[in-house]
Amino acid sequence: MDKLKERWDIDSNWSIIAIFIVFAINGSFAAWVAKPITEFLGLSPEVISVWIYWPLRILLIFPIYQLTLPIVGWLFGQFKFFWTFEKKFLSRLGLGFLFKENN
């Protein structure tokens, strides 16, 4: 726990527990939200091959997860951590320009 607190610049064990809870809830939430979206788009394993359906569903879950992570983090009082996490993660994907301030 101490290594995580140091690495993530966190002061309390409650913060680590809250962060783990947020990751778990948000993963389930993103998967739950993706189902009606895929149905709305007319995508289902009965209509298209499961070899196409599941990669498309996973590709849909990814942006939902990224968008909702700071929101769910905020609900648990961890917005600062998750906003920093998102900026770092998206920068590693080459989307860091989204967070650069105009000079």
Rank of each mutant, 00 (worst) to 15 (best):
I17Q: 09
N26W: 05
I37E: 07
D11Q: 12
N26L: 00
G42I: 13
W32N: 05
S12Q: 09
V22C: 06
P36Y: 01
N26P: 01
P45T: 09
A30W: 00
F23A: 13
A18K: 12
N13H: 07
P45Q: 09
A18L: 14
W14Q: 09
A34G: 09
V33Q: 04
S44K: 04
I16G: 04
I25A: 04
G42S: 12
P36S: 07
S12H: 03
I16R: 01
S28G: 14
P36D: 10
F23W: 15
F29R: 03
I17F: 14
V33E: 02
I37S: 08
E46Q: 00
L41M: 14
A24K: 00
I37T: 04
F23Y: 15
V33I: 14
A34S: 11
F23V: 15
W32M: 04
V22S: 08
A30T: 03
V47N: 05
I16Q: 02
F20M: 14
I17K: 08
A18F: 13
A18Q: 11
A24L: 13
I16W: 07
F20T: 14
K35C: 02
E39H: 08
F20V: 14
E39Q: 08
I25M: 12
P36N: 05
V47D: 00
I25E: 03
V33P: 02
F29S: 01
F40Q: 00
S12E: 05
V47R: 00
F40H: 11
A24G: 11
V47K: 02
S15F: 13
V33Y: 05
S12A: 06
G27E: 04
S28V: 05
T38C: 01
D11W: 13
L43K: 02
K35M: 11
F23N: 12
S44H: 07
S44T: 05
V22P: 03
F40W: 15
D11A: 14
L43P: 06
